[in-house]
Structures are given as structure tokens and as C-alpha cells.
Amino acid sequence: MLQSLNMRATVLAFAFLAVILGIWEMANQAPKAKEALTEYEILMGGADQEARVPPPSKVIGLAVEELSDPFYDKGPNDKGIGIQLGYSVYRVLSGYFMAAVIAIPIGFLIGMSPLMQKAMNPFIQVLRPISPLAWMPLALFIIKDSEASSIFVIFICSIWPMLINTAFGVANVRKDWLNVARTHELSPLRTAFTVILPAAAPTILTGMRISIGIAWLVIVAAEMLVGGTGIGYYVWNEWNNLDLTSVIFSILMIGIVGMLLDMALSGATRLVTYKE
């Protein structure tokens, strides 16, 4: 049984998990009270003078509780984790798909035309390094809607990897394949769809995968700024409530949803990848 590499890796991973959780649990035990607790100490939950990071046992308890009813809605300050994550995923996907609709055709144009490449390059080089959150005040002023502004921030941060990868993939389609299209008298449009798109698809999808990762990083920060709903708001709100157990739980949920988004894109990449 222990022969298979996967099996051994799984066992080792669980061992690491046990060690980490063990140390975390041990290091955060409140000291035993030496004498009877005062009324004040009972109210504060123990004799401890400093606040401690909640141990994993508490986080797991909260996780079970939250995940068993993820979609409850008890007003603006108390919504289920599923609703908060749903808002964030909705914003990420809307901004992301808008970016794809614009970035992929423009990337095609840049990749196919050296003129466009040279003309657009300065804009890309200046706009790309701007932190997406730096756009937020301007977006809020122009759009006048916090929800739409956070979608715009996602849009602006996901556009660059897709644009650059599409342009790169299209510009590097093998000359031989283009010659095949030329000797078969394909129209430019048919060449784009039947030769260039499938040839560049793995590179384009790689750009899309980078973009979704960045978008998920940015949405948390954006929602902390604009507030209201979303997982970023949730983290910040629980911090203000001094509920660190919920903060740790939501951090883990951010990681899990990010991983699922990445897995979806990596699956899509595998679909269009070809071997030579």
C-alpha cells in the first residue's frame, strides 16, 4: 500500500497537518488558573492577561457550524459564509469575463500586427504595473457605485496577463502552420479561427489562469475598501468584531475558493493543450 508515490505523499501530508495543528493547539492554550477566578475573569473567559490566537479546535468547530448553514442572512452584519463568498465570486467572474472579452481580441490584433504591437506597447507598459486598487478612487468617482467599482478593479487587474499572453501566443504561432493556411487559401478570419486560435489557445489559457489568480487576490482587498458584502468585507468585519476564529476560518475559505478557481482554469487549459 505504501508503495505508490501518491499514497506516501498523502500520508506525509497528513503527518505535516497533524504536526502544524498540534503545535498551533499547544502554543495557544490559556494557562490554568491558580486560584478561583474573579467575577471579572469569568466574564473575560479566563485568567489570561493577553489575547491568544484561537486554537484549531475552535476554528474547526466554527467551520462545521458555518458550513452546515452557509446561506443564512440575518441582516448586513451577519450573513452566511456561502453568501459572502458568492458575492466575491460573482464580482470576480463578471470583471474577469469583461476583461476576457476585451483582452483576447485586442491581444489577437497586437499579436498579428507588428504595427499595433509597437503602437500599443507603451500604453501596456505604463498601465500594467499600476496596483489595481490605485484605480479605486477614480472608479468610485466616475462610476458612483461601490459594487461596480470593485468589478472594475477586477476588470483592470485581469486584463493584462490575458492581453500579453494572447499577443505572445498569437505572434508565436509556427510559421509552418500559417503557411499551411496560406497554401489552402484560407481567409484571414478562417485562419484566425481554425489555425491561430487553436495554436495559441494553451498560451491564452495560461494568461487566463494567471488572471483569475490575481483577480481573486485583489477582490479581498477591494471588498475591504468598499465594504458591504463579500469575503473581503467579511474578514474585515470579523476583525472589527474581534472574532479571530471567524477571521482564520474565512482566510482558509479564501484559500479553498482560490484553489477551486485555479483548478477550473487548469482543467480548461488541459482541454486545449496539444502535444507535438
Binding site: D176, N179, V180, T183, H184, E185, A199, Y274
Partner: peptide, 30 residues
């Protein structure tokens, strides 16, 4: 380039994402 001149390239130049048959139908359909 024109369809009345068919070319067999030295490195085959098959489209790697298409099956053998699809590579041929690619030309036939054009």
C-alpha cells in the same frame, strides 16, 4: 499561394491539435 498548388513540407506541418483525418479534411473543406 493557391489551392491549385499543393505543398508537402519537409517537417510535415500537420496541425497537432487535429486528428490525421481532420488534417486531411482541413484541406478538402478549403
Amino acid at each position: 499561394p493557391a489551392l491549385e498548388r499543393g505543398v508537402v513540407f519537409q517537417n510535415y506541418s500537420l496541425l497537432p491539435w487535429l486528428s490525421a483525418l481532420k488534417n486531411v479534411t482541413f484541406g478538402v473543406r478549403a
